[in-house]
Nucleic acid binder design. Structure first.
Lengths: 214, 214, 214, 214
DNA sequence: GATGAATGAGGATTCATTCAT
DNA sequence: AATGAATGAATCCTCATTCAT
């Protein structure tokens, strides 16, 4: 039923949401004024209150919008009987990196605006989403352990923290990476692809090293 | 030369810096007013402008203060000839986790306030600090590779992203972790120790798995 | 000719008028938004402008509605030849108290919204209504004086001020009266009846004392 | 201790209070913007929040200021043994009319802004003030009744309602009175004096007629 | 060296009204 | 005839900073 709410945003509302998301990610929630958003989105200032009630409700809407939108993505992975546990994990890594690179603004927002995460509604949404993912990965690990593919004694939360944390940190310090490795001449698009590939390969190797029984 | 500036903060200035750091971490830079800081620190509102010039200069001071303060810590590791490359990395992991857990507010601030990182002064400070650490770890890796302890083809930036990203993410989602694993009854202090140990052991295992030549 | 306008208010318009009257009395004209009225009355926001032109025109309509509506009431008293001047005054007192208690909202409005009274249209309406009543009472007084029932040298305006002012003040401080006399347990309805009777008896005594020749 | 609070308003604060009082009386609380007040008082808009916290706190301050200021006035009347009960009442009437004519704005405010009267602080202040006055008048009446000067069965609340209500209504309809009696040519000052005298004489006659035993 | 008073600029929100349908 | 969408103007208030002392 959360999805239902998500769907009925009209064109202008989506436009506001996406503009706000971008600005909030760049300048923070408090650092972005509704004037900024309105101007950038080319709409009247009053429309933000009109559509969302308040600036705070707007960012809540952004979270609800993105989270409920991405919830279903991973679910199918686990049910595919043809895939090995290792393949499943690789699929999950690819899926996460893909989403994160596509929605860098939102992921940055999620890392930045801790206070929003404490809003009851959002907090529950995130907890549920995280717990669900955690459970799913736990099952894959257990499957791999039963099959003798994976080592025992793995803390799922830490494993996820590695996937998410490494990705986030690597992405958010991409400017450093570019400068450090002298990649100024690469086009933005190419650079993103490069990062994505590099990150994916690395995480898969990392996971395999850690999990595989020697 | 940055250190010179660091040293001559008087008692009141340090008090302001530490109060501001805490509040900025909790409510964001823009979400915290100088009134909040003044009140919390028990000083006059005008003193912030008086001592630091402006609110923005204050947060710059915080960054300069913390970064220059922690810069020297790791440097000695590499020169200790008695330690093996693996031991050196373990020392670095411990050292990072230790600093991060001790200065959670500042590390949160660093993750939150991206716009501050773009301030010329701060940006350079951070780039230098990061590059220096990177170089040092690179040397340890090379040493390990030469000795045949470590595998080749390791991207230092990604390795650091794993250490830093995993730690940050794990720490910042500690509320989730506590709830997910039903650890409400543990005291705050015990919980911090528990996280620290868990994280340290995990990262060391992770690094060893990835780096060790099988 | 004002009456003509009064009559052709349709059901919805009357509903708006009565809701607005209540809200204006409770929260003042400026303190009540058209949204409040629309919501309370269960009608569309745009209907107020649509039906009345503007919020200001609406309150003017309320005044016109109530004043023209109550204008005819007293007129007949004076023509009843069978009543003595004293009886006529008593009838007027009863009639005023009755109307005021029934339309407390409107009478409160009239006392509160001074600025509305300065609107040309309303101002004239009220002046006419007041002057007419004044003239009528003056005639009753003169009749009583001629008959030797009433004392001379009575300022009609002051006499009316006593009737109206005492009633208004007594009514508007009913909460005080209730608390002061410990009448919390009386039902609202009973309390209203009690006030009405008390006030009527008092004003008649007061008028008689003042007017009667000893 | 309320007086203490009253006294320490500085010159600018008093200026704001008096300007606000006048404007609130003329246009209502909600009808007056802080901009209006600031402009009229020749001060910066922010000073109202700065000095009083908010617009609402400002009007509360006005009430507290006027009420606590006028509280002591009547108290001495009753203790003067040389005065007869009738003289005491006359003194009270004069005193009330005097205060009301001098502070017409505030008295209008008190009649208009019912919602403010519901503020806990103000409400108590007014109740106390009213109850105190009521008690005092009650004592004078009892004294007069014991001496055989006054009639029995007088409701003090109604008697006060007559004094206050008549005065208020008469004052607030002074424009009508002027027009009705063709007194346009009289100077404002003279007209005020005229009203005052007329009202005083009338109320004294009225009270005497009602109270005196025939 | 330190601070209380003061302020202009800008914050989010609500307002009554309009207009296309 | 009736209304949902939309908006410019105005609302109160808070902000970081300055300045005289």
């Amino acid at each position: 039923m959360q999805e239902a709410k998500t769907i009925d945003y009209n064109e202008k509302q989506v436009q506001i949401i996406e503009t706000a998301e971008r600005l909030f990610a760049a300048k923070g929630f408090e650092g972005t004024s509704v004037r900024d958003i309105a101007q950038e989105a080319g709409i009247n200032i009053a429309m933000i209150s009109y559509y969302f009630g308040s600036k705070e409700k707007l960012i809540e809407a952004i979270f609800a919008y993105r989270i409920s939108y991405t919830r279903l993505t991973i679910l199918n992975v686990i049910n595919d009987e043809a895939m090995s546990p290792t393949e499943k994990l690789e699929r999950i890594i690819d899926s996460y990196i893909d989403k994160m690179m596509k929605n860098q603004c939102f992921y940055r927002l999620m890392a930045q605006e801790r206070s929003i995460l404490e809003v009851q509604n959002i907090s529950e949404l995130i907890y549920d989403s995280k717990a669900r993912n955690m459970e799913m990965v736990k099952k894959i690990l257990q499957e791999g352990q039963k099959k003798g593919e994976f080592r025992k004694n793995i803390d799922v939360a830490l494993l996820m923290a590695t996937m998410i944390g490494t990705s986030n940190h690597f992405t958010s310090s991409q400017a450093f990476y570019r400068r450090y490795n002298n990649l100024k001449d690469m086009s933005d698009e190419d650079f993103q692809k490069y990062l994505k590939k590099k990150l994916g390969t690395y995480l898969k190797t990392l996971f395999k090293s850690l999990l595989t029984v020697q």
